[in-house]
Design a binder for these strands. Structure first.
Length: 408
DNA sequence: GACTCGTGGGA
DNA sequence: TTCCCAAGAGT
């Protein structure tokens, strides 16, 4: 809900004054309305067509809006596209998703990252089905109570799906407003100020279009680098542009350096090429996803004792796979050495682990880092000195594409 | 507030 | 190669 405007003077249009002289101050009512009208006019001419968006004038489906907003958290439109379509195909309504098995949801989410989102997505669907009769609540406050829905998503769904006058402040909006009002304070300390500015701009009518207009403006005009100010409907109002400092805003606090963690992973195959996998703990990094067994990932190379203790079976003739699998998470780099081994048929059962046939790997809930490990180790295995063709024909069509994660 | 939590693409 | 970033939430 927008805070009350800070001024009652509404008509000082005689002065062609530069935009808000007080950096970071709230706009007066007159300039606010004018800005809002220009933004919506621009949006009507330049709105992007996206899979989750309703056609102009049509009502958005709250389920699609919510699903897209969860997927789009810290994730690009291009990445989300195929996942959104596939989820919609498999689970056309929130009730379908609520009835799905969590593991199926995790499998479908694999590769998209931030896997707590997938667990909360399912929990949220169940809550909507059980507590709200299968219909999303239409207020920001009620939405905010659902799993996986924070301040931003509650406002976005309320505005886009229900046209409520809510201020959805994401990275795009923060950037646009930090520039328009020349907010010099760095993020994240500037967030309260930016939220207040965003709230003051929300119109009573067409709040959903206003919200999406800000997204589009941030995505196509007011971009992080080289903003295209000449095309911006707010350029006449923009304090940063007037001062030529738009490229410097928003300022951001320095980030911590990423440490490197290291570990040893075990690729164990049976005589048919099936791979031994286990499920990670429900919470924490890659929570609930599948993985190949490995040592802990720590700041130092695991010693022989640690490697032996972490091996899924004793007495395996482990062969080192040449090279290193590298992967970068949000807050650390990971370097994995891989040991490959084999057991004869019939493969022994391993507590807490499962044998997955080669052809079934792609459908597993395997995060990208584990697909890198498998691709790396299986490729090396196929080309190994034994020439035993363990990988056989399994690589061409199993979707485990090689990337730059391995060297050697 | 400070951390944790993925991934892929672009400069 | 390295860094930055993308429609953030939970603890």
């Amino acid at each position: 809900m927008p805070p009350a405007s800070t001024s009652s003077r509404a008509g000082k249009k005689a002065e062609a004054a530069p935009p808000d002289q007080r950096p970071g101050g709230l706009p007066d009512a007159g300039s606010r309305r004018d800005r809002g009208a220009r933004l919506l006019s621009w949006y009507d001419r330049h709105r992007r067509v996206l899979p989750w968006r309703a056609a102009p004038g049509e009502r958005a489906d709250p389920y699609r809006v919510w699903l897209s907003e969860i997927m789009l958290q810290q994730t690009t439109v291009a990445t989300v596209g195929p996942y959104f379509q596939e989820f919609l195909r498999r689970w056309p309504t929130v009730l379908d998703l609520a009835a799905a098995d969590l593991d199926d949801v995790l499998r479908a989410w694999a590769g998209l990252g931030y896997y707590a989102r997938a667990r909360n997505l399912h929990r949220c669907a169940v809550a909507v089905a059980r507590d709200h009769g299968g219909r999303f609540p239409d207020t920001e406050a009620e939405l905010r109570h659902l799993p996986g829905i924070g301040d931003y998503t509650a406002a976005a769904v309320a505005a886009i799906a229900f046209d409520r006058p809510a201020a959805a402040v994401d990275g795009n909006v923060e950037r646009v407003l930090a520039r328009v009002f020349r907010v010099e304070e760095p993020l994240p300390a500037a967030k309260p100020r930016l939220r207040a500015l965003a709230g003051a701009l929300v119109p009573e009518a067409r709040a959903g279009d206003h919200t999406q207009a800000l997204f589009d403006l941030g995505a196509t005009i007011c971009t992080p680098r080289r903003p295209r100010c000449i095309l911006c409907p707010w350029q006449p109002d923009c304090a940063a542009s007037a001062a030529g400092v738009q490229e410097d805003l928003p300022r951001k606090a320095a980030k911590a350096e990423k440490p490197t963690r290291r570990g040893t992973a075990f690729l164990l195959c049976d005589g048919d090429g099936a791979v031994l996998l286990r499920r990670r703990p429900e919470t924490g990094l890659l929570g609930g996803m599948m993985e190949v067994p490995s040592t802990d990932w720590t700041g130092t190379v695991p010693g022989a004792d640690a490697v032996r203790a972490a091996a899924p079976l004793p007495g395996i003739g482990w062969r080192p796979v040449p090279g290193t699998v590298r992967h970068t998470f949000t807050h650390f780099h990971l370097e994995l050495e891989v040991l490959a081994g084999r057991v004869p048929q019939p493969a022994p059962s391993v507590p807490g682990a499962v044998w997955v046939p080669r052809a079934g790997l792609e459908a597993e809930a395997l995060p990208t880092v584990m697909r890198k490990v498998l691709r790396h180790a299986l490729a090396a295995d196929a080309a190994g000195p034994d020439g035993d063709g363990l990988a056989g024909d399994g690589l061409a069509g199993d979707g485990l594409d090689e990337d730059e994660g391995a060297d050697g």
